[in-house]
Amino acid sequence: MAVLALRLAGPMQSWGDASRFTQRLTRSEPTKSGVLGLLAAADGRRRQDPIEDLAGLRFGVRVDQPGRLVRDFQTAIRWQDPKRPSMPLSYRYYLADAVFVAAVEGDRALLEGLDAALRHPVFPLYLGRRACPVTGRLNLGLHEGDVEQVLRRLDWQAAAWHRRRQGQVVDLPLHIDAPATLVEPEMVREVVRDVPLSYSPERREYGWRDVVQAAPHHVTNPDGRAGFDFMAALGGV
């Protein structure tokens, strides 16, 4: 199997999977539906087009720079009937200054087409919502192996300022589609409803998937802060 990897970075990202009414939430990591939507846009697919081939890809994400949660609010009025009261206040949540590495695994021919589409996208690409454009390098290319192997192999993508604030060894969380075989007991497992079945505005549909938190990926950080040696400060050995 081949794996296509992406670097997801921008001033703002928002990856909702259960937003309702006036609350528009975001997960702390990219959703499968959001990333596949980005790939579909690059490929020139419209919302009514079939996406079964994309939904069948195995998905994983590595948290290279978690960012911080921010909240915005929006109001709206009915311009067609200004005498009517304004719409309810809605709250929108975003991740600021986050960086992720996402990967999809599947048929090489399909991924080669998506790789080419990312280099010359048909529609604008964004990170979960239209107000969240992609910045910097997006396409990390095609790789051999499975999702977990590739996510552990790729370089750390965090910004220099973030690296300086970390220690000299950093753990990067991994969230991966559960394999078909039995999951190791120590893995944290979660059921998430973010597999796109249809992006149609008339009837958006999503299915469920099992996600596991694999052992974090350890990276050395020569730019990080050295830990405080308490015994050395006391003159101990």
Rank of each mutant, 00 (worst) to 15 (best):
D49T: 07
P124H: 00
D17T: 09
D43F: 02
M12S: 03
A214I: 03
P133V: 02
N139C: 09
Q48T: 11
R189G: 00
C132M: 11
P85T: 05
K83L: 11
G56Y: 00
E144Q: 09
H120E: 13
D49I: 10
R108Y: 00
A103W: 11
Q157R: 13
L38G: 01
L125M: 14
L36E: 05
V134S: 08
E184S: 11
V70L: 15
M1T: 08
F123Q: 10
Y206F: 14
L154S: 08
A233D: 10
A232W: 06
R189L: 09
L114P: 13
A178H: 05
L174F: 10
V188Q: 14
R209Y: 04
D229Q: 11
T135Y: 15
G60D: 08
R152L: 01
A226N: 09
Y93L: 12
Y91L: 12
L6M: 15
K83D: 12
L138E: 02
T26D: 10
A109N: 07
F100Q: 07
A18G: 12
T22M: 11
G227S: 14
A2N: 03
S200T: 11
L234D: 06
H120D: 09
Q74Y: 03
V212S: 07
G67H: 05
V134D: 06
I77F: 13
R209E: 08
Q23C: 10
C132N: 12
H143E: 08
Y93T: 15
D155N: 04
R92D: 07
E144A: 11
T22P: 05
A55R: 14
S28M: 12
D17P: 01
F228T: 13
V122F: 13
R71S: 05
R153W: 01
G16S: 13
L234F: 03
L25M: 10
E202F: 12
L172C: 14
V101A: 14
E184T: 09
G167V: 15
A117T: 04
A226E: 15
H162V: 02
Y126W: 09
V147F: 04
D64V: 10
E202V: 05
P66K: 12
D194A: 04
V147W: 02
E105C: 06
D49G: 09
R68E: 15
H143D: 09
A41Q: 02
V188H: 12
L182V: 12
Q74N: 01
L25I: 09
A102D: 14
V150S: 07
R137G: 02
R46S: 02
G56M: 00
Q166M: 09
Q65R: 12
L69N: 11
A116F: 00
V150K: 04
R78Q: 03
R78D: 14
L118D: 02
L127P: 05
R71I: 06
L89D: 10
W208V: 03
